[in-house]
Design a protein around this nucleic acid. Structure first.
Lengths: 139, 139
DNA sequence: CATATTTTGTTTGTGTACAAATAGACTGTG
DNA sequence: CACAGTCTATTTGTACACAAACAAAATATG
């Protein structure tokens, strides 16, 4: 194998992104130890929507059916959201934030934005915008 | 809350990176269904080094002690690597790829590079370089 | 209307990922 | 030498993440 063809782990996008996500999660849990990024994402989206079915919430937060179920179970166990089968479509489980859930969201929304700021802190504003745009294009 | 201050999930780095990683993993498992990105990373690094202790391999692949143990266990179960306590330091577990492990690495190294190419395919070469550089700076 | 298909949710199994507690082995310093 | 501190590995518990298989409900289509 030619030297230039060598597979260098540290130069693969997947590896670098995995490490960047690790750092991001570390920042998140330092600033918001009360919940995980995933749980906050689900709660935030549900607060934005007011209500949504479990499936719908999963799609909007990019979690598959098994994952969103676990996240919802944990949020419900902490009484941050409620769930009830929909009368008009008994397959669907309608979710809504509780008063406590909305309070939790309001309490941490600013902190969550700060997590993004700290994650991007090594870059200047232009670079931050650039990174976000490039990432959005490889989704 | 001001409209401009609104927390928009889709614009948070963490959320976008998580989705980008999801797409990357999907591409990886389509091209290399035989193993996970994590397992390949550990195998690749071990092949590059020739040998390493479990702890060392974990550090170099950014996996914590519990994670690297699981990955090593699975690679060993498939006879892709061997492990043996080091005589001169009985705490350490020295790992080395087997002939089969090295063959597996050689077989998939080109595919793994192709995974990176496909992940970055929506971007032109300059943008790909840019994205990698920006990601490396927020690690 | 009857049934084939799709949608929603659950369950099971495997694989990262990390925190915290534990145990055994090494190292440094008094 | 003794022993305090450090390093390596293991174990346990929790939380994503996804595939696959299943059941129940709704919808589409003949």
């Amino acid at each position: 194998m030619d030297k230039n063809d060598a597979y260098i782990l540290e130069r693969q996008v997947g590896f670098v992104m995995r490490r960047a996500v690790q750092r991001h999660i570390a920042i998140f849990s330092a600033l918001i130890p009360e919940m995980t990024p995933t749980q906050f994402a689900a709660l935030a989206k549900l607060c934005e929507l007011g209500q949504a079915s479990q499936n719908e919430l999963g799609r909007l937060t990019s979690m598959d059916v098994a994952t969103i179920k676990g996240v919802v179970d944990r949020l419900r166990a902490r009484e941050l959201i409620t769930s009830a089968p929909l009368e008009s479509d008994k397959r669907r489980l309608m979710l809504a934030p509780t008063r406590k859930g909305r309070a939790m969201y309001r309490k941490y929304a600013a902190q969550a934005a700060e997590v993004s700021r700290q994650t991007l802190a090594p870059l200047d504003e232009g670079e931050q915008r650039q990174l976000m745009q490039l990432l959005e294009r490889i989704i």
